[in-house]
């Protein structure tokens, strides 16, 4: 049986926003196995991004259990969580979020600054990642000198440069045109298929979800259904 990399039980997240009590996630139970490409779908405010942030340990749950890659995230300090995230998780944002003063290869190198790799090794790893996303010709370009699609590919290269077990993507095609979106999705699918990366992607685009091997629907913080790509 395939190893479970993400497991939540009764996962709940509540916010107090302007005196209103908001339940963003309501007792969510989910298991995601190694090598899966999961799309989290749902309308705005359904809790899909909140679930992604909890999986990435960017936020703490109000209640419930969450184990990612065998690690109980509730037991880690802020510092331990930072190192854990650097080693095990690659995160892709909707708005790319590259550092504007760094060029493409420097942006990709950034997570490697926290490792024990030498400068030369860091540069080699970053170049390999950029090559994998097809941007070896744009290494010295600043983000403002790249198109949106290229920026997102740099962001994908940055997410995979530490060779993480888990790639999390929050609406990765939300700011891209159709052609660039397909390029990015094909890349994610390739990472999942050829390199065995477990990917969790938040999207509200059914076309994007079509690239996933499994689609989970959330509504008002509740996990409704979970369908395999083959519809089972």
């Amino acid at each position: 049986m395939t190893e479970t990399v993400i497991q939540t039980r009764g996962l709940t997240k509540e916010f107090i926003r302007d005196e209103f009590h908001v339940v963003a996630l309501d007792r969510v139970d989910i298991d995601i196995r190694k090598g899966e490409f999961v799309a989290l779908m749902g309308p705005s405010g359904s809790g899909k991004s909140t679930l992604l942030h909890l999986i990435a340990a960017m936020d703490r749950p109000t209640d419930g259990e969450i184990r990612v890659l065998g690690q109980d995230l509730r037991g880690l300090s802020d510092r331990e969580v930072s190192y854990w995230r650097n080693s095990h998780v690659g995160f892709i944002f909707q708005s790319f979020n590259l550092i504007p003063v760094l060029n493409a290869i420097e942006n990709v190198e950034l997570p490697l600054k926290l490792t024990t790799l030498t400068k030369k090794e860091q540069r080699e790893h970053a170049a390999t990642a950029l090559k994998l996303v097809g941007l070896e010709e744009r290494m010295r370009h600043l983000p403002r000198q790249l198109s949106g699609g290229q920026e997102q590919r740099v962001a994908i290269a940055r997410a995979i440069v530490t060779d993480p077990d888990l790639i999390l993507a929050d609406e990765p095609t939300g700011n891209l045109d159709a052609a660039s979106a397909d390029e990015a999705l094909n890349l994610l699918a390739k990472l999942n298929r050829d390199y065995g990366k477990t990917i969790v992607m938040v999207t509200h685009d059914p076309h994007a979800a079509g690239f996933a091997t499994r689609v989970c629907h959330l509504e008002k913080g509740v996990l409704l259904e979970s369908l395999q790509a083959d519809g089972s």
Binding site: N86, N97, I99, L110, P111, L114
Partner: peptide, 9 residues
Amino acid sequence: IMKTLGFTP
């Protein structure tokens, strides 16, 4: 962004 990449406070 840097914290998401693993930079500690």
